[in-house]
Write a protein that binds this DNA or RNA. Structure first.
Lengths: 198, 198
DNA sequence: GAATAATGTTGACAGTGTCAAGATAACGGG
DNA sequence: CCCGTTATCTTGACACTGTCAACATTATTC
């Protein structure tokens, strides 16, 4: 006979995270709700409180997961770009921009939402990993670009981050398409300017 | 005798916008609520519906107002920077960064919030004005920086926008202070690279 | 001055996050 | 094996939100 289906979830925390990610993908940030995630996981509305510190806790957990996907996307784009240092950095940026475009909900949680706990250790670990990927690709150019207190990677990060966000809410109201990756590459080349250090 | 105090507000729409801006400044985006703005304007909770298209309408109106302040701040910073084209562009960027730091709530409404109606004519007018200010300061450098389909101003805008946002939510979790304006200037100089066209 | 429009109020509704109290399941020590 | 303890989940409530409909009041216009 079947074992009686367990009254409790096997791993409700995980189920809630996955349900929340689905909701986020389907309905954007507004579509992700503690009660809806609970319902989708087949559980009552107050169950999540035992696994997360309220809504911010769930959002933070999802943001950590999103950062892991983000890192994986940048890694893959870099590795597909071949050996040239600039091509690798540009590949990472294209992974960045594509992720921002294709997973706007995740991106919002990762970088924008004020409801995620930026001090959470898991989140810091995940975001730090992503940061190091970009930093690593900047290293070949660091000698020429570094200021005393503001390394080049901050400039690259700012450029790609701003470019991604303005893609969503362009101040003149016309969201542009992201067929402009070559154009971004030009901007990146201007910022890097001097090429890899000899 | 006094005229009897009007039962209706003299200009409730304006009063609601000002109350909303106060709430936004005091309590951030989470502190701004239709009902609270109505209460602060001394009016019942459903009154705003006659002046705005719901909460998005109020947020959109506030975003327009915020863009006007934003433009004024950039104008002032540019005019205080003297005649040199790079100094003027850099002044605008410093106005941009200072505004983002000092008015995070406005900035969020202007560029981030999904509840703002980006198609609103007033908002488009106000944001377009701001855009033209930055564009104008980029013009002296445009000949060298322009790509066919991606003008230099988009690069400058991306850089300063990303730099501003990463100042709030740095991916490694440590929000840096904005005493780094000189460092940003270095980045901007790298992007401009060739100097004003001869 | 009376009809009409603009402006506000009241009350209700569904939805949200959160909390307290109790029910149920799993686990561990005797 | 059984009982107490703990973790997990449910139920019910609360305050708060945006929005709507019905009604009251004021201003405007003919």
């Amino acid at each position: 006979m079947d074992q009686p289906a367990p009254y409790h979830q096997g791993n409700l925390r995980e189920a809630l995270i996955l349900a929340g990610m689905d909701l986020l993908t389907e309905g954007g940030v507004a579509g992700l709700t503690l009660r809806r995630a609970a319902a989708r996981a087949g559980v009552s509305h107050a169950a999540p409180a035992h696994h997360f510190n309220g809504l911010p806790g769930l959002l933070t957990a999802i943001a950590s997961r999103a950062f892991q996907h983000f890192s994986a996307a940048m890694d893959a784009a870099r590795d597909a770009a071949g050996p040239d240092p600039f091509a690798r950095l540009n590949g990472i940026c294209s992974g960045y921009l594509n992720f921002a475009q294709d997973h706007a909900g995740f991106f919002h949680l990762m970088f924008v939402s004020a409801e995620v706990d930026r001090a959470d250790p898991d989140l810091r670990q995940a975001s730090s990993t992503a940061y190091l990927i970009l930093r690593g690709a900047c290293l070949p150019f660091a000698a020429r670009g570094a200021t005393e207190d503001e390394p080049l990677e901050v400039g690259v990060w700012s450029l790609v981050h701003g470019y991604a966000l303005l893609g969503f809410n362009l101040p003149n109201g016309q969201n542009r398409r992201f067929n402009t990756l070559p154009a971004f590459t030009d901007l990146l080349a201007r910022l890097i300017a001097d090429g890899p250090k000899p």
